[in-house]
Amino acid sequence: MVRRPDAGHLSEGEIMMYVAERVAPYKRVRQVTFTDTVPRAASGKILRRELRERT
Rank of each mutant, 00 (worst) to 15 (best):
M1Y: 06
M1V: 05
V2S: 01
V2I: 07
V2G: 05
R3V: 08
R4L: 07
R4E: 05
R4G: 05
P5M: 04
P5D: 10
D6R: 08
D6V: 03
D6Y: 08
A7F: 06
A7W: 07
G8P: 08
G8N: 07
G8T: 00
G8K: 07
H9A: 11
H9V: 02
S11H: 06
S11T: 14
S11L: 05
S11A: 03
E12C: 10
E12L: 02
G13F: 09
G13L: 12
G13I: 14
E14A: 11
E14T: 08
E14F: 04
E14S: 05
I15M: 01
I15H: 01
I15N: 02
M16N: 00
M16I: 09
M17T: 14
Y18R: 12
Y18K: 10
Y18M: 11
Y18P: 02
Y18N: 10
V19H: 08
V19D: 06
A20N: 10
A20D: 11
E21R: 15
E21W: 01
V23G: 00
V23K: 03
A24V: 06
A24L: 09
A24R: 12
A24E: 13
A24P: 05
P25D: 09
P25A: 09
Y26P: 07
K27H: 00
K27D: 03
K27G: 05
R28D: 02
V29S: 00
V29C: 03
V29P: 05
V29A: 08
R30W: 03
R30P: 02
Q31W: 08
V32R: 05
V32D: 03
T33M: 14
T33D: 12
T33V: 14
F34T: 01
F34I: 03
F34L: 04
T35V: 15
D36W: 03
D36I: 04
D36Y: 06
D36N: 14
T37N: 13
T37Q: 13
T37A: 13
V38P: 03
V38H: 07
V38E: 09
P39F: 03
P39W: 03
P39N: 08
R40Y: 11
R40M: 15
A41F: 13
A41H: 14
A41Y: 13
A42W: 12
A42E: 15
S43N: 15
S43C: 09
G44I: 07
G44H: 04
K45M: 04
K45A: 08
L47C: 04
R48A: 05
R49I: 00
E50D: 15
L51T: 05
L51K: 04
L51S: 07
R54S: 14
R54L: 14
R54P: 01
T55G: 15
T55L: 15
